[in-house]
């Protein structure tokens, strides 16, 4: 079950195509899956960036961030994942908005693609804005171009598109008076906050795909709780998309750091395991 059919990597972002026909059949834009690489793994949420009902596959882009993503990154074609649960979360709200801006950073470059595609199919003008440290780090571009009226780039070093980040491109558009009817953002929490701050002065309806820490993904634990407009919501079942202007970002950033210490411990124990493995094989 859940065989890995395709693997590639672009710097530290890993593409993984997985056999999961039931999920491919029922998934919609904006939804995610929860994955365990092995029986020992943590359950981690990952956005489904594409799917194919003919081949029965889903596509994930995994940013190496710690032990779980690293273990997934080490998996090869032919390996099988222990558990893939999904689709989870409420799909993106797709309708005729007019002009839709979708901003993506790190895993969000791939992650915004299904929503962009659905928005395009619903007759919207779609503008995708993607950011990276420098030019070779972009991925999934061909697909994104195919469903967007425009793809704008931002790079930290200025090697492609505007020097800066997604929010700088958004601000520039808004300053120029370009009308945006709906904005979607996906990426790290800091990026989501900055982008929400960029659209706030112009009161652009803004949805952000939150990435709080999750466990079950079906509403039974509350690990993923976030404060939105003064109310506690569970990101896995009430979201992941919320109004970016109402999210309590300070709380989210703190909650995301809850396991920082343990993340280091487990990472070190893993490196230690790798070293001993190598020693056993006589490579060290």
């Amino acid at each position: 079950m859940y065989e890995v059919l395709e693997r590639s990597e672009i710097f530290n972002v890993h593409k993984m195509v997985i056999k999961a026909p039931e999920i491919a059949n029922s998934i919609n834009a904006g939804q995610f899956v929860i994955i365990m690489g092995s029986e020992y793994s943590e359950r981690i949420p990952l956005t489904v960036s594409d799917w194919n009902t003919d081949t029965g596959t889903i596509t994930l882009y995994i940013l190496e961030a710690g032990i779980s993503t690293l273990e997934l990154a080490r998996m090869k074609v032919g390996d099988s994942l222990y558990a893939v649960t999904g689709p989870l979360g409420i799909p993106s709200e797709i309708k005729h908005y007019g002009t839709v801006v979708l901003g993506g950073g790190c895993y969000g470059i791939g992650g915004i693609y299904p929503t962009a595609r659905a928005c395009k199919e619903a007759g919207n003008k779609v503008i995708a804005i993607i950011e990276a440290r420098y030019s070779p780090m972009f991925y999934h571009e061909k697909e994104l171009h195919a469903v967007s009226d425009q793809v704008l780039y931002a790079t930290v070093d200025g090697s492609r598109g505007r020097k800066g980040k997604v929010e700088d491109v958004v601000t520039e558009m808004l300053e120029k008076g370009i009308k945006i009817d709906q904005a979607f953002f996906m990426g790290c929490a800091e990026m989501l906050e900055r982008c929400s701050e960029a659209t706030r002065p112009y009161a652009i309806p803004t949805k952000v795909a939150l990435n709080s820490i999750m466990l079950d993904g079906s509403g039974m634990c509350g690990a993923c709780r976030v404060s939105v407009g003064g109310e506690t919501r569970f990101a896995c079942v009430d979201g992941p998309e919320f109004d970016g202007h109402k999210v309590d970002w300070k709380e989210l950033h703190k909650r995301k750091r809850a396991y920082a210490e343990q993340e280091i411990v487990v990472y070190q124990s893993y490196s230690h395991e790798c070293l001993s493995e190598k020693k056993l094989r006589g490579e060290l």
Partner: peptide, 18 residues
């Protein structure tokens, strides 16, 4: 759930932190 289902009492062998 962390402790029982995910066996985080055996962390870090089991990866789910507690």
């Amino acid at each position: 759930t962390r402790s029982n289902l995910m066996k985080s009492y055996l962390f870090p062998e089991y990866r789910t932190p507690m």
